[in-house]
Amino acid sequence: MALLPSDLAPSFSLLLIFASFFTSATTAAFGLGGGAMLIALMTTVMNPLIAVPVHGAVQLGSNGGRAMVRFPHIVWPFFIWFCIGSALGVAIGGQIAHLLPENLFRGLIGLFLIYIAWGPKLKAVLTSTPLTALTGTVTATIGMITGVSGPLVIGFLQGLADRRAIIATHAALMTVQNILKLAAFTLLGFQFATYLPLILMMVATGFLGTLVGSKMLDGLSEQIFRKIFKLILTILALWLLAQTILP
């Protein structure tokens, strides 16, 4: 317990370590939901100004582990241009994060997810280099402000035919965004060392969750995956909209 952050009750630290397993398993199996659930939990027990960078560090481990497990399925052309755009987005988001209302972005994300779940698929993004780079810029900017960009990113991957390609490419893209986000927070003066033991323990349990969730994904048919994915996307969208509307 001595290694855990002094400004966080030991019971809350253990809760986050435990939750990291289940949220990582959820994302590994269904593509989304885990990161948003984890940041929601973290902001209830931690100062949001601390929760967002710590969450980014934990998600780096979670997404990096998932990218390694699913490495053969990554769609590389989309990955390269998305990363170029993300570098610009992180730089922009780091400068304006404290100036913009977070709830506005959460509401817009919720509306976008409703469209992704029930509207036409955004296949053009997968075949257009400028749109891919712009997608990276926009999602990275929003991720720096709200801590939530994963659902946005995976929304643009719905044109991919195989569920494993969606999961793998999403994990690789988010890994890069997490690396850029951590670099930006470090340059902005956040002291990660204080929370490093907690981060490492959450990464460890998160990787175990990734292995379990990956097994679940392999056991799902493409049809069932798409139905569960749409359900989780809709629930997540309604949750974000509720956060925006309710005091």
Rank of each mutant, 00 (worst) to 15 (best):
I84C: 13
L88I: 15
L88S: 14
A91D: 06
G94R: 15
G94W: 15
L99V: 10
L99K: 11
L99D: 11
L99Y: 13
N103V: 03
L104K: 03
F105Y: 10
F105W: 07
L111G: 06
I114R: 11
W118L: 09
K121W: 00
V125I: 15
S128Q: 02
T129G: 02
T132P: 02
A133K: 08
L134K: 11
L134E: 00
T135R: 06
V138W: 09
M144L: 15
M144Q: 08
M144W: 12
I145P: 05
I145E: 10
G147S: 02
V148R: 00
S149W: 07
L152M: 15
V153R: 10
I167L: 09
I167F: 02
A168Q: 01
H170P: 00
H170N: 13
L182K: 08
L182R: 09
L182W: 06
A183V: 14
A183N: 03
A184D: 12
A184C: 11
F185C: 02
L187V: 14
L188Y: 08
M201I: 05
M201S: 07
V203S: 01
A204E: 02
G206P: 01
L208T: 01
G209P: 01
S214V: 10
L217V: 06
D218E: 14
G219S: 13
S221G: 09
